[in-house]
Design a protein around this nucleic acid. Structure first.
Lengths: 207, 207
DNA sequence: GATGTTACCGGACAAATGTCCGGTTGTCAA
DNA sequence: TTGACAACCGGACATTTGTCCGGTAACATC
């Protein structure tokens, strides 16, 4: 049995769905727009929409992919251009990119996160390239930092996962609202929490 | 205008709802049970249920309160009994309690978390005593640890919030499933990540 | 170009979430 | 005790989510 590629009409419908959803979200916001409304506006059937996207979070995640690809490229470029800098500084930079992404795509990310307990792989943020890439890079940087400091023996992958989880949109906006922090202040807090400790022990080691 | 206490029939209904929900959840699990089913089984109207609980996550959070109160007491007792131990050890103990709670109440917590983007205060986990208490205690322990090590200058409250977020049920079960970790292995990972670093720098300082 | 297979289409259907409103009952004050 | 008010009650209703199935059209093969 040969691999059959997606039918042309299916591809067209996918484009149509993404474009329609984008327009509706731009006009009314993400939360108020229903799947029914998207299908109706796009002029397609309900099932056609649900066949492509298991739920709204899944659709939102797909809408984030383009942005995610761009983000991945940007972070990659940043890491290349700053490859001479110490690991803690590069880690700090990556976390900054991540926080900017949360602010830029708050609504889509919140919607995605809300439906993330789905056991199926589709529409699960943890299977997205954006998460995978970020976790790998953060883990790599943590490894570099750990290599300089023999006292730290945490698992870099686990730690990277924990760091990303600690930056979940709900948690981010919760503390931001509660304390009235600006985006830059939160970046600074994350730096102090995850980065400066590493840097400090590294500096202390050199002394 | 005097403060009017909850009407007797309202109190009775609340008890009835909690008991009915508990029975249904025990028999079928949390996710498969609908609000309609709960109301019908309890023999009350749909609106009566929704008046008390804005959504299923809100109901789950209320069901967690009894457990949460017990947890708070346990942690408090533990902290009192181990007040002589170093701060990093007590922090480790608190995190263990928290992970046990995630495992014990996985379903209810996942349901609560899924509906947490609600802007209204009702049914928001971040306003629960369980979260407040844990954050305060963790922040206090972090302060103690930081006091011993002048190199760390993170904000204890912010750090405590980040630690709790990093332990969100979805993230917890994601990494657990992906790696096939046991509960004890994850506890160990969190220890290494958040506790041993502090301990190490403290030991290094003494040397 | 004809043909069989197969994925796709979308309206209709089922079920869950969330809201409204006329009727009822507990509670407070007189 | 009684009357008035406010909170509560619950069935019916509206909206949203998610699924089924008969019909249609694209793609591979001949």
């Amino acid at each position: 049995m040969s691999v059959r590629r997606e039918r042309r009409d299916a591809v067209e419908n996918r484009q149509l769905i993404l474009q329609t959803a984008h327009e509706l979200f731009s006009e009314y916001g993400v939360q108020p727009v229903s799947m029914h409304q998207i299908a109706k506006t796009a002029g397609i059937g309900q099932a056609t929409l649900y066949r492509k996207y298991a739920h709204k979070g899944d659709l939102c995640l797909d809408m984030l992919h383009e942005y995610g690809d761009r983000l991945i490229k940007e972070i990659d470029r940043y890491l290349t251009s700053s490859s001479g800098a110490p690991a803690w500084e590069r880690l700090s930079g990556v976390l900054d990119y991540w926080i900017d992404a949360i602010e830029d795509k708050a609504e889509l990310l919140l919607e995605t996160e809300a439906k993330m307990n789905c056991d199926d792989d589709r529409g699960n943020f943890f299977h997205s390239p954006m998460y995978r890439f970020s976790r790998d890079k953060i883990a790599g940087l943590l490894s570099e930092i750990a290599a300089e400091d023999p006292a730290t023996d945490f698992d870099p992958d686990f730690a990277a996962h924990a760091i990303i989880c600690s930056m979940s949109p709900v948690g981010y906006f919760q503390i931001k609202k509660e304390r009235g922090y600006t985006r830059e202040q939160i970046k600074e807090h994350y730096r102090r929490m995850f980065v400066l400790t590493a840097r400090a022990s590294s500096v202390r080691r050199q002394a």
